[in-house]
Write a protein that binds this DNA or RNA. Structure first.
Lengths: 227, 227
DNA sequence: TCTCATTGACTTACGATGTAAGTATGATAT
DNA sequence: ATATCATACTTACATCGTAAGTCAATGAGA
């Protein structure tokens, strides 16, 4: 009876804010953000719910930290690339990160205090544009347009019911045809049956089209502003 | 002792799905979506929580209905306008509706079954583009680009802490300068202090810039595709 | 080596939440 | 007057976030 309780257990890696946040992200990825509770997160970490409060002030701060962790996954614009390539890469990286964590978009829209990774990301984006000769005003335009597009696209992607496999697509098609009666929504009907549900269609591919539209437009505006 | 209980009360307007949804939207507008509960919504309607379940299947369906109600506020593209004007008007109307109900963006990203008003909106947008000579494929591009931008902008606007009044702005400025140390985030620092926090700046005005970027780009693509 | 402060995990408890199940009431139809 | 039916109310339960208090392990100073 050397020690009293809980002996012979695993040596117990101590918790940390980092570990808590990573576990929360993994949990939300698997089970959805709606079913993330402090108790279940504790369970996933082999710990009681209240222990988590030693590392995050409350659940809201946990959610803040999760969003920031997702932002930290986004590639910063590389100084080596020209601005267009740098923006394209970081946009695609952002889409990828938000695609891996579809719950992040919902969180972003309710949380108003950005974390350090988010701020670093924004700082790098602004720096990249400024270095490419964008005036402050035009940088604001570009930043707003690009980020709106990126987040909005991620939102639509998260919302779209289109599955990955062929069976999923078929099931979705069935549901859509039922919900979009040809007489009531003729254009939507044609659009989905003739295009979106056709075998080769991949909504993700739409991303680059809109992105290039914005990038080309920005380039044109920049060049016409400072000849 | 003619009747037994609850006599002499107001004649009691009966509940309806419509009335429940409208009350829910009003509640969320005033108190935020996070504090909307079935009990509080019932209270706002002078009714017990469980009575609401006679008109909505569960809370999720209530949220679905709320999103659809917001969509019903968005102006449909008018057939009389040329496509660009029609798209501009509906985009501005959408931004306005989402601005009035900032919680809607968060809901949109978690709800995958669009309601009738949402479908009607999409049908009208697709119809407007098709009528303007956009091919189905280009309509998909346009739809994706425009809606991504619109929702993303609304998301950013909902997230941005910038207040409306001068005092609010000052308070935000104070907070930002503290959180954005010049040495750590030099570009962000310059950007906020030199531009965003300057008296005349209004983030909402950025909307039209990006919108026109996309609309002009779409027009160019359409005209070069079918000469 | 012993002592003791500190850290971080555990226990208990409370009010609030979504909603299943059952009950009562008032309006309408016969 | 009676029966039917829609709709509101009551009760109950599992789960939630988290305040407050307890207890054990750790590391420093003597």
């Amino acid at each position: 009876m050397a020690t009293k309780t809980r002996t012979a257990k695993a040596p117990r890696i101590p918790l940390s804010r980092e570990r808590v946040l990573r576990a929360a992200v993994a949990f939300a990825d698997q089970n959805g953000i709606a079913s993330l509770s402090m108790r279940k997160l504790g369970e996933a970490l082999g710990v009681e719910a209240m222990s988590l409060y030693n590392h995050v002030a409350n659940k809201d701060q946990l959610l803040d930290g999760m969003v920031d962790l997702v932002f930290s996954e986004i590639e910063l614009p590389a100084g080596a690339d020209d601005w267009k390539m740098a923006m394209r890469k970081r946009a695609q990286s952002a889409r990828q990160a938000l695609g891996h964590h579809p719950w992040a978009i919902a969180l972003m829209s309710t949380r108003t205090s950005p974390g350090p990774a988010t701020l670093r990301h924004h700082d790098a984006v602004i720096g990249s544009l400024r270095a490419a000769g964008f005036s402050i005003g035009l940088t604001a335009h570009a930043f707003s347009a690009l980020d709106s597009y990126i987040y909005g696209f991620a939102l639509q992607e998260a919302t779209l019911p289109l599955g990955d496999t062929a069976e999923e697509t078929a099931a979705v098609a069935q549901m859509m045809v039922e919900r979009f009666p040809r007489e009531v929504f003729p254009h939507l009907y044609e659009f989905t049956t003739e295009h979106v549900l056709k075998p080769g269609y991949d909504y993700g591919a739409e991303f680059d089209f809109g992105l290039d539209l914005i990038l080309d437009g920005l380039e044109r505006v920049r060049d016409s502003a400072s000849p």
